[in-house]
């Protein structure tokens, strides 16, 4: 860990008007402090934003508003979330460990960095950490890496479960910067790696996520977050599916499908949704629709199984909503 300047922000205005280069905002610290100890993150200044008034979980008619500094565990257990937005609660409960969930903030969760082992080891190359230094994962240990949205410079998986659920729910993030406030659809928050994998989000320097808003799902919608992982707690997804489904009689009236653990960003799957909408979701229909999930997939030497696992995960998740099977 390198020496750094530590300050406490007094207000949002105070925070966003500090000189941005080399400044890192500190909320729960569950990503930032780890990465500083590894010297992956070397901020010149750390600004503690925990005293900012970015709290509150409020459900009104059209949607849910979550303050960016709310902790994962608080959101997961909030009655408005468990009753009205169970998909969010489920995704949060499947994340990390209870200890991490007690510390980590919602804003920080959305901006957590990839778990790629090369990104976290400064002795190796990594285009995300040091642009131009290469990507050892492409030829190396890549079992947990992405198959969707990858480029020749980066194949790192986006790690957040919550973001997958939020992408399925068409959430919006409110951001505050020196130039004022703006709302950003969550799908637009995350960038594909392309040739600049070090640029992960559409946030401008110094911009701070202050709130997440989630529109309510229509009545009668059922949802599930299915996470497949190597062990049953404290582990990132090999593959996950966030699915919300509304039936009309025997056919699908509306469905939203997003996937995690397989993409370089949370991955919405409109082609799967289209193939299911208006159809009776028999297993063969669902499996055929799920096959669209891997359109354009680029598997690596150790993660070819994700191409099949993603289709199976979506199929299982959708069918569980259709007939209530485990």
């Amino acid at each position: 860990m390198r020496p750094f300047r530590f300050d406490v922000a007094r207000s949002v205005e105070d925070a966003v008007h500090r000189p941005a280069p080399g400044l890192a905002y500190l909320a729960g610290g569950t990503t930032l402090v780890d990465l500083m100890k590894l010297e992956v993150a070397n901020p010149a200044a750390v600004l503690d934003i925990n005293r900012l008034p970015l709290r509150g979980i409020r459900s009104d008619g059209p949607g849910l508003r979550i303050g960016a500094l709310e902790r994962m565990s608080a959101v997961a257990g909030h009655p408005a979330v468990t009753s009205g937005y169970p998909l969010l609660a489920e995704a949060l409960r499947h994340s990390a460990s209870p200890q991490v969930r007690n510390m980590a903030s919602i804003g920080g969760n959305l901006l957590q960095r990839t778990r790629c082992g090369y990104f976290r080891d400064v002795r190796t190359g990594c285009n995300k950490r040091v642009p131009g230094s290469g990507c050892p994962a492409i030829e190396g240990e890549n079992r947990t890496h992405a198959v969707l949205g990858t480029s020749d410079t980066c194949v790192a998986t986006h790690p957040s479960d919550l973001a997958v659920a939020l992408v399925a729910l068409d959430a919006t993030v409110l951001v505050h910067g020196a130039g004022g406030r703006r709302a950003l659809p969550i799908a637009d928050l995350y960038l594909l790696p392309g040739s600049t994998p070090d640029q992960e989000t559409a946030l401008r320097p110094g911009e701070l996520i202050t709130e997440v808003t989630v529109p309510a799902l229509p009545a009668g919608t059922r949802s599930t977050y299915l996470k497949i992982r190597d062990r049953q707690s404290y582990e990132f997804a090999l593959c996950s599916a966030a699915v919300a489904l509304r039936m009309r009689g025997r056919v699908v009236r509306e469905v939203r499908v997003a996937a995690g653990g397989v993409g370089t960003r949370p991955w919405r799957l409109p082609a799967v949704e289209d193939a299911l909408t208006g159809r009776a979701p028999r297993p063969d229909v669902v499996a055929a629709a799920a096959a669209h999930a891997v359109d354009g997939a680029r598997p690596l030497s150790q993660n070819r199984f994700k191409v099949l696992l993603l289709q199976r995960t979506i199929t299982r998740a959708v069918l569980s909503l259709v007939d209530g099977r485990g």
């Binding site: 778990r115 082992g117 002795r123 190796t124 190396g140 240990e141 190597d230 062990r231 049953q232 707690s233 404290y234 582990e235």
Partner: peptide
């Protein structure tokens, strides 16, 4: 010769839930 998973997040051992 580098051990790619030389930490307890990447070298998996059972947790209670398993």
């Amino acid at each position: 010769g580098r051990i790619a998973n030389a930490n307890l997040a990447d070298y998996l051992i059972p947790v209670n839930a398993d």
